[in-house]
Simulated scan of single mutants.
Amino acid sequence: MLPAAAEYQYLWEISSGKVSGGATVRTFGRLNSYDMANSEAILAVQHASTQHQLQVRTTLVEPFSAHLGSYYMALGELESDASPILCARLLVCIDGADLSLLQQAVEEQRSYLQGRHEETGGR
Rank of each mutant, 00 (worst) to 15 (best):
Ile42His: 04
Thr24Trp: 14
Tyr8Leu: 05
Ser83Arg: 11
Ile85Lys: 00
Gln109Lys: 10
Ala88Val: 07
Gly121Ala: 01
Ala44Leu: 10
Ala88Asp: 09
Ala5Tyr: 15
Ser65Ala: 15
Leu31Phe: 11
Glu40Pro: 01
Thr27Ala: 03
Ala74Asn: 12
Leu68Cys: 05
Asn38Glu: 09
Ala5Arg: 15
Gln114Tyr: 11
Glu13Met: 04
Ala23Asp: 10
Ala74Leu: 01
Gly21Glu: 12
Gly115Cys: 02
Thr24Ile: 07
Leu54Gln: 02
His47Ala: 08
Leu101Glu: 14
Gln114Asn: 08
Tyr72His: 05
Thr24Leu: 03
Ser100Ile: 13
Ala6Cys: 10
Phe64Lys: 06
Ser83Ala: 14
Ala97Pro: 01
Arg116Asn: 09
Gln51Gly: 06
Thr50Leu: 08
Glu118Phe: 02
Ser80Lys: 09
Ile14Phe: 03
Leu102Trp: 04
Ser83Thr: 13
Thr58Cys: 08
Met73Pro: 04
Gly96Ala: 11
Leu60Val: 02
Leu91Arg: 03
Leu54His: 05
Tyr8Cys: 02
Lys18Met: 10
Ser15Met: 03
Glu77Tyr: 11
Leu99Phe: 12
Lys18Ile: 01
Ser111Asn: 10
Ile42Asp: 06
Glu107Trp: 11
Gln109Asp: 06
Arg57Trp: 12
Leu60Thr: 04
Leu90Tyr: 12
Gln46Ala: 08
His67Lys: 14
His52Tyr: 15
Phe28Trp: 10
Gly121Gln: 00
Cys93Lys: 10
Gln109Trp: 04
Leu91Lys: 03
Gly122Pro: 00
Gln103Trp: 07
Tyr72Trp: 10
Ser111His: 06
Glu107Thr: 13
Ser20Gln: 11
Met73Trp: 05
Ser100Phe: 11
Gln104Ser: 12
Gln55Thr: 15
Gln55Cys: 14
Arg110Lys: 14
Ala6Thr: 02
Glu107Asn: 11
Ile94Arg: 06
Leu78Cys: 07
Leu31Ser: 05
Thr27Met: 06
Gln46Ile: 05
Asp98Pro: 02
Ile85Gly: 00
Glu119Arg: 13
Arg89Glu: 13
Glu40Tyr: 00
Gly96Asn: 06
Gln53Cys: 09
Ile42Asn: 01
Leu113Asp: 05
Gln114Leu: 10
Ala88Thr: 06
Leu11Gln: 03
Pro3Ala: 01
Tyr72Phe: 13
Ala6His: 01
Leu43Trp: 03
Ala82Gln: 14
Leu90Arg: 13
Thr58Asn: 07
Gln103His: 15
Leu60Phe: 09
Ser70Lys: 07
Pro3Phe: 05
Leu60Trp: 07
Leu60Ile: 07
Glu62Lys: 02
Phe64Asn: 08
Tyr72Gln: 00
Gly17Ala: 02
Met36Trp: 09
Gln55Gly: 14
Ser49His: 14
Glu13Gln: 15
His47Leu: 00
Gln53Ala: 05
Lys18Thr: 01
Glu118Arg: 09
Pro3His: 08
Thr24Phe: 15
Ala41Gln: 03
Gln46Pro: 02
Met36His: 13
Val92Phe: 08
Val106Ala: 09
Ser80Glu: 12
Arg30Gln: 12
Ala5Glu: 13
Gly17Glu: 01
Gly115Leu: 05
Tyr72Ala: 03
Thr50Met: 13
Tyr71Lys: 13
Leu31Ala: 05
Leu91Asn: 01
Leu102Phe: 08
Met73Asn: 06
Arg116Phe: 00
Gly21Ser: 12
Leu90His: 14
